[in-house]
């Protein structure tokens, strides 16, 4: 008390200001390297995308006269038009949409039905079936590569759209089940019971009551399935022969190395942009579900 009375309020204020300034400086000095590192990496991700965009918007001849660091002198959408028409990118794009949508809808529906049964219905052999489904989470995908290929070949399914759908529907099944069973188990039984008393049948209980409640879980599964299907490479590589059925991943990969003509570079970048944009939009829209779902997903390991 005595010391405080000898110090005037102004001096105290000055001291506090100086202290705050020092704190700010120290904080800035400790945080600067963090910002530099994080900033550098973030910048590399953003610049990579911007570079692809810029490359796709310039005439190809500029590339060789001014080099990659120069901004486009002339802006054009011609690369997109050419890629879409001449390089089958339009077709690849529609195929990718088809595989992603049918693959996602089918596998989410299949997993939801199965998960509901395994989570909410008691019947003999339930645990056995549950573990049977979980087995394939532990098996690396390459083991069945050859036998599965010949299974499909013998069924006459090689080089069809159906084979891509079938593999999408079964491929993610175990993992999606694992997530959705946990989700269904958290829902209260009272709702099912009161729906039954109100005269709902089993299908209505599932479709009208439980499925809407499971929407957050289904959304997470659907987003991950869609992103996985959009980028899927190995299944089409193994099963498709006819280029008209290729998705973007396979089509662009073959185009990029198949063509030795450097005149197609900028068109390839246009194709890449068309491949990136949808997935980027989905990511930015569903960012929260994706980052949260990823954590749940990793627990399976």
């Amino acid at each position: 008390m005595t010391t405080e009375s000898t110090v005037t309020p102004q001096v105290m204020q000055q001291q506090r200001d100086r202290q705050a300034q020092q704190d700010r400086l120290r904080r800035w000095l400790t945080e600067a390297p963090a910002y530099a590192l994080l900033g550098a990496f973030s910048l590399s991700a953003i610049l990579a995308l911007i570079w692809v965009l810029l490359m796709s918007l310039r005439p190809v001849k500029e590339l060789f006269t001014y080099g990659a660091w120069a901004l486009p002198k002339e802006w054009t959408l011609q690369n997109y038009v050419d890629a879409w028409r001449e390089m089958r990118v339009g077709q690849y794009f529609f195929n990718t949409v088809l595989y992603s949508v049918v693959g996602t809808v089918g596998s989410v529906f299949l997993a939801a039905c199965t998960a509901y049964i395994l989570a909410r219905v008691k019947f003999p052999g339930r645990n056995f079936i549950y573990y049977l489904f979980l087995i394939s989470l532990m098996i690396p995908g390459y083991l069945a590569m050859v036998p599965r290929y010949f299974l499909m070949k013998n069924l006459g399914l090689v080089d069809t759209y159906l084979v891509i759908f079938l593999i999408a529907w079964t491929g993610g099944l175990s993992f999606n089940l694992f997530l959705l069973i946990n989700f269904f188990e958290t829902l209260p039984t009272e709702l099912e019971e009161s729906a039954l008393i109100d005269g709902a049948n089993a299908w209505q209980i599932f479709w009208d009551i439980m499925l809407p409640l499971a929407r957050p879980g289904l959304a997470t599964v659907a987003i991950f399935m869609f992103m996985g299907q959009w980028n899927e490479f190995m299944t089409p590589l193994i099963y498709l022969r006819d280029a008209s059925k290729y998705p973007l991943a396979l089509g662009l990969q073959i185009l990029s190395f198949g063509s030795t003509y450097s005149a197609t570079y900028t068109k390839l970048f246009a194709g890449m942009m068309l491949f990136i944009i949808p997935i980027l939009v989905i990511y930015l829209v569903f960012k929260r579900q994706i980052t949260e779902g990823l954590t749940v997903g990793a627990l399976k390991g």
Binding site: Y116, F133, S136, I139, L151, T170, L173, L196
Partner: peptide, 27 residues
């Protein structure tokens, strides 16, 4: 009531899983 769903719901996915998913691994 729910047990009525076991066969229609589990049947297709179990069949697909056993034939396409699991069996080729054993093979």
């Amino acid at each position: 009531e729910l047990r009525k769903l076991v066969i229609p719901f589990l049947g297709p996915s179990l069949a697909l899983y056993l034939v396409i998913g699991l069996w080729p691994n054993l093979e």
